[in-house]
Amino acid sequence: MSNLQPAKGSSKDQPGLRYPTSGKTIYHRPLNRTKAAELSGSSFAYLFSEMVGYASKKIESIQDLEKRLNVQGHPIGLKLLDLLLYREPTRSQTRPLNIITLLHFIKINVWQHLFGRAADGLEKSSDPSKPDEYMIIDNEPLVNRYISVPKDMSQLNCAAYVAGIIEGVCDGSAFPARVTAHSVGKQEEGEMWPGRTVFLVKFAPEVMEREGYLGKS
């Protein structure tokens, strides 16, 4: 299967690929060169809407579409984990070792890098029967800014793409999880954040076991 990688990790040099005569490959480019680069928000919006449009062909249900978006976001999360840790100042360059650190990393570093601001909230689920659920809250997800969902698809939340990215980050740091996006903003007058979205992070049981074990020692 071919993997196109906007790769920042180490990928071994592949004989057989042609390079331009200048000999410059992507390995010569400094990683931090495009750190603060910016592009127009519309370019992202158009690409994203084409992506959603392409994914919505041949699907049978809304869950299917959200799953596809999730799958597309996953590899990005993996790459972002490596990249953002690399860019951290050396003393904090260790990967997150417990859930809270990981979630803080996502809430602050990942969000700041992708959207230019930290996420708006991080909460542990208040349901005692579900100790493995945490919630990251975003009042106005960038990806939903230009999308207005028609009435017949009102359960669709295109932030499933961002949920996939979060899932990639979690999986990459050895905290396997399932992440889904839910819109909780109400479409009524006086609602400050009608697009408010909650990303529900549900960790796998072995993670909770490990947390419990580490917490005790």
Binding site: G53, Y146, I147
Partner: peptide, 10 residues
């Protein structure tokens, strides 16, 4: 027009 019709992917 551009904001609400053109940019609306739906």
């Amino acid at each position: 027009w551009v904001e609400y019709v053109v940019k609306n992917p739906l």
